[in-house]
Simulated assay, not measured.
Amino acid sequence: MPQNYRIYINDNTLFVSDLLPKRGENIQSIDVQGFDFKTFYKNLDKDAAEKYILIAEDPKQLFRRIRQSCELIKAAGGLVKSAKGNYLFIYRNKRWDLPKGKTEKGERMKEAAVREVEEECGVKIQRNDGKICRTYHVYPLNNKLVLKKTNWYAMTVKGEPKLVPQKEEGITKAVWLDDTSLGPVFKNTYPSIVQVLEEGGMI
């Protein structure tokens, strides 16, 4: 089974894999020899939306090396489905997103995911249906590079409750959308959210 990691930097994606993807995507290959993640990050056009790939015999080891060059922050979030079959989306920082947030000390990822969804959208989660995937996102914080590891879970609620966006978290809208109304989301969201929707079976 191929090993494949994706690291998101703004709208750019860095794949760490043992083989090239089968899809005919425009991906720039990077030489693994002498690769330094901090140098790569510094030279990257953060306003672009490019795809890069590092091909390695042992992607896990290479990814671990990248992870060790950053400060790790753990977060968790949810793809929530209502009893009517619609999905919960939020609008934050001028983009469509899914509810998520950092874990608290001693908190399990699964528990953090439910808490964050309930806090950010004012709903009660009936059931956590298991992990969908994990995403990695790199950004600068206090002169350091942070690697945010987010575990994403499928969740369900009873009925289709009214949503209350947590304004103090910068959330201006929280809405239920059916899977035929996601065009505006795909046009204005993050690559990591597209990955969650892909692995959650919505694409």
Rank of each mutant, 00 (worst) to 15 (best):
56 A>E: 12
63 F>P: 08
167 K>M: 03
185 V>H: 10
146 V>C: 10
2 P>M: 04
185 V>N: 13
104 E>T: 07
44 L>F: 12
67 R>Q: 12
117 V>K: 05
143 N>S: 13
7 I>F: 03
135 T>V: 09
40 F>G: 00
163 L>H: 10
87 Y>S: 01
9 I>M: 10
12 N>K: 04
11 D>H: 05
36 D>S: 14
100 K>G: 04
43 N>P: 06
45 D>T: 15
164 V>Q: 12
9 I>G: 02
146 V>G: 08
17 S>D: 06
62 L>E: 01
134 R>D: 02
124 K>R: 14
55 I>A: 09
100 K>F: 06
34 G>F: 03
84 K>S: 04
74 K>A: 06
6 R>Y: 02
40 F>E: 00
96 W>Y: 13
62 L>Q: 05
189 T>G: 02
41 Y>A: 12
107 E>H: 03
174 A>M: 10
132 I>H: 07
40 F>N: 02
22 K>M: 02
3 Q>L: 13
179 D>H: 13
165 P>D: 03
124 K>Q: 14
21 P>F: 04
101 G>N: 07
116 E>Q: 08
182 L>K: 15
86 N>W: 01
135 T>K: 01
191 P>H: 09
51 K>N: 11
81 K>C: 03
26 N>Y: 01
74 K>P: 02
71 E>I: 12
144 K>M: 01
114 V>D: 01
160 E>N: 13
120 E>R: 04
115 R>V: 10
196 V>W: 15
87 Y>F: 11
181 S>A: 15
18 D>P: 09
29 S>R: 14
7 I>E: 03
8 Y>L: 08
3 Q>V: 14
34 G>I: 01
174 A>D: 07
71 E>K: 11
108 R>Y: 08
159 G>R: 14
93 N>D: 07
149 K>S: 12
163 L>D: 12
156 T>I: 05
106 G>R: 09
183 G>F: 10
142 N>Y: 08
133 C>G: 05
198 E>Y: 12
32 V>F: 04
138 V>H: 06
143 N>E: 15
112 A>N: 00
4 N>Q: 06
61 Q>R: 13
73 I>V: 14
113 A>Y: 01
147 L>I: 11
34 G>R: 04
125 I>A: 07
143 N>K: 14
50 E>T: 13
71 E>C: 04
75 A>P: 06
144 K>N: 09
81 K>N: 00
167 K>S: 07
21 P>L: 02
96 W>K: 07
33 Q>D: 00
127 R>M: 00
179 D>I: 13
129 D>P: 05
